[in-house]
Design a protein around this nucleic acid. Sequence first.
RNA 1: GGAGGGAUUCCCGAGUUGGCCAAAGGGGGCAGACUGUAAAUCUGCUAGCUACGCUUUCAGAGGUUCGAAUCCUCUUCCCUCCA
Length: 409
Amino acid sequence: MSNVFDVLLERGFIEQTTHESEIRELLAKEKTTFYIGFDPTADSLTAGHFLTIMAMIHMQKAGHRPIALVGGGTGMIGDPTDKTDMRKMMTVEQIQHNVSGMQKQLSQYLEFAEDKAVMVNNADWLTKLNYIELLREVGIHFSVNRMLTAECYKSRYEKGLTFLEFNYMIMQSYDFLELNNRYNCVLQLGGNDQWSNILGGVELIRRMNSKPAFGMTLTLLTTSEGQKMGKTVSGAVWLDPNRTSPYEFYQYWRNVEDSNVERCLGLLTFLPMEEVRRLGALAGAEINTAKAVLAYEITKIVHGETAANEAQAAAKALFAGGVDSGSIPTTELSQSELGDGIDLITLLHTVGLIQTRSEGRRLIQQGGIYLDGTQISEFDYVVTKKDFGDKAELLIRKGKKVFQRVELS
RNA sequence: GGAGGGAUUCCCGAGUUGGCCAAAGGGGGCAGACUGUAAAUCUGCUAGCUACGCUUUCAGAGGUUCGAAUCCUCUUCCCUCCA
């Protein structure tokens, strides 16, 4: 089997390493225990986390042992990295809820049986720390001067950085030390924004345990404008199907920009690299084929084959002008709600396509609403039973690619 | 604790000799055109509503005035310098 380091490199995962040749050698010759931490900021992981999960899966497949750490302890502090403002403090209950939600999801993607992977919560040790003891043992190894030069704190100079958050790096470094002691964990992976936090841990282990330790950061997916991928205006793209439906999830990847298709295929699917390169090289409208493959493959990994098939079928039906399929977002409307007719704006509001009636009025006036493919131009249009036709359903289209089906019940 | 500066619509940021301010400009978002469910570009929209008008907005609470984002008082929060 080829070295997983080369696999990760070829697929585009690796951004920075602390000791490239040593890491490569290590991964080639022995079963290595490594860890990635997840902050419990919500009860579901997001598309952004998925990239790091893929890295873990590749590593596990190559025979190494992943430790999935969920930060029930560090979550009490909050990582100041890339935050322009201080994050609001979460309650302990909230954190615990989020930790269990994330752990549940992580267990779907990694194989935990027979000690093939380990799940930990750093609250188990961080909450028991003794302040003075910690300062004497660990604090002595950190230079504030150096910490202040870390990139992740720079953006906070203007807005302010609390001592609470300043300690985040130390806590994360301590985690690595603890995992090194408990599980002989010698490698930490993380998003590239975690570089300074990872370095802290690597150096701490080298100083306190006089043992080698390594760090490696993974690329961050960004759009051509430099925005982090995996975010939409309405929020993150979640892995939890109740937060982001498989259809929406599929559509998100179906719509990635051309220039990101090849990267995404390498990072977020298991397709062989020859195939990735072939698909990525498709030009012009042809690349849509590649996007469909990307969307299908990643949906399959995250939500399973059935959901992926459904999402794909729904997308095909809607965009190729075909007809029904099960997983188009659907709302039920009762006969009594319909009555003798319901004005279109109210209907749009009921099914959640608009937030305010003004928005609906604008939308219709600008020609953004279609009922069963027919553009509606009067904002006071009244929808009656007739619009639902024989099948008692109505397909509303907002703009080019937002669809909502209404079923009369 | 002392001195000064600030808080504006989703974000950034104009506006502070009181009316012409639902509030410039940019960003973002939405829609339209062009396209390939892409990017770029162009156009329009972007507080709410029972909509040629009406109602609620410019940190919060009062006040002056025919009329306040703009003036006065108090409060809260933030920043800078000093200690």
